[in-house]
Simulated scan of single mutants.
Amino acid sequence: MSFTSPEQRQAFIADIPKAELHLHIEGSLEPEMMFALAQRNDIDIPFASAEEVRKAYAFSNLQDFLDIYYQGMNVLRTEQDFYDLTMAYFKRIHADNAIHAEIFFDPQGHTERGIAFSTAIDGILRALSDAEAHLGITSKLIMCFLRHLSEDDAFATLEEATPYLDRIAGVGLDSSELGHPPSKFSKVFAKAKMLDLKTVAHAGEEGPPEYIWEALDLLKIDRMDHGNRSLEDDGLIAKLRDSQMALTVCPLSNLSLCVVDKLEDHPLKKMLDLGLCATMNSDDPSYFGGYLNDNYEATAVALDLDKDDIITLAKNSFRGSFLSENTVAQSLQRIDDYVLAFDRKTG
Results as ranks from 00 to 15, higher is better:
Val53Gly: 01
Ala56His: 14
Tyr70Gln: 05
Val75Tyr: 07
Tyr70Asp: 03
Gly72Lys: 02
Tyr69Ser: 04
Asp67Asn: 12
Tyr70Phe: 15
Asn61Thr: 09
Asp64Cys: 10
Leu66Trp: 07
Glu52Arg: 09
Ala56Thr: 11
Phe47Glu: 12
Glu52Asn: 14
Val53Leu: 08
Ser60Glu: 08
Tyr69Glu: 02
Phe59Lys: 06
Ile68Cys: 02
Asn61Gly: 15
Asp67His: 11
Gln71Met: 09
Ser60Lys: 09
Tyr57Trp: 15
Lys55Gly: 08
Gln63Ile: 15
Arg54Ala: 12
Asn74Thr: 15
Ile68Phe: 01
Lys55Met: 10
Gln71Asn: 00
Ser49Cys: 05
Glu51Arg: 08
Phe59Thr: 05
Tyr57Ala: 04
Glu51Met: 04
Asp64Ala: 09
Ile68Thr: 12
Tyr57Lys: 09
Leu66Cys: 10
Val75Leu: 03
Phe65Tyr: 13
Val75Phe: 02
Arg77Met: 07
Asp64Met: 00
Tyr57Asn: 07
Ser49Glu: 04
Tyr69Gln: 06
Met73Ile: 07
Met73Phe: 06
Val75Gly: 03
Leu66Asn: 05
Phe47His: 04
Gly72Glu: 08
Glu51Thr: 12
Ser49Lys: 08
Gln71Val: 12
Met73Lys: 01
Lys55Ile: 06
Ile68Lys: 01
Lys55Trp: 10
Leu62Asn: 01
Ser49Gly: 10
Gln71Arg: 03
Ala56Arg: 10
Leu62Ala: 01
Ala56Met: 06
Ser60Val: 03
Val53His: 03
Asp64Gln: 03
Val75Cys: 01
Gln71His: 12
Arg54Asp: 10
Phe47Arg: 04
Val53Asp: 06
Gln63Asn: 13
Ser49Phe: 09
Glu51Asp: 15
Ala56Leu: 06
Ala58Glu: 09
Tyr70Val: 07
Tyr57Leu: 07
Tyr70Ile: 11
Val53Ala: 09
Glu51Pro: 13
Ala48Phe: 04
Lys55Pro: 03
Glu52His: 13
Val53Asn: 07
Glu51Lys: 06
Phe47Met: 13
Ile68Trp: 00
Leu66Val: 11
Ala50Met: 10
Leu66Ile: 13
Asn74Lys: 14
Lys55Leu: 13
Ala58His: 14
Ile68Glu: 01
Val75Gln: 02
Tyr57Gly: 01
Lys55Tyr: 11
Gln63Arg: 12
Ala48His: 08
Arg54Cys: 11
Ser60Cys: 07
Gln71Trp: 02
Gln71Thr: 15
Ile68Pro: 01
Leu66Met: 03
Ile68Asp: 00
Val53Lys: 11
Ile68Ser: 00
Leu76Asn: 06
Ala50His: 00
Tyr69His: 06
Met73Asn: 13
Tyr69Asp: 05
Ser49Trp: 02
Ala48Glu: 12
Leu76Tyr: 10
Ala56Ile: 04
Gly72Ala: 03
Lys55Glu: 15
Leu76Phe: 13
Val53Gln: 00
Tyr57Pro: 10
Gly72Gln: 06
Ala58Gly: 00
Lys55Ser: 12
Ala56Glu: 13
Val75Thr: 00
Ser60Phe: 08
Asn61Arg: 01
Gln63Tyr: 14
Tyr69Arg: 04
Asp67Ser: 04
Ala56Lys: 05
Glu52Met: 06
Arg54Val: 14
Ala48Thr: 14
Tyr70Ala: 01
Val75Glu: 01
Arg77Trp: 00
Ser60Gly: 14
Val53Trp: 05
Phe65Ser: 00
Ala48Asn: 12
Ala48Arg: 15
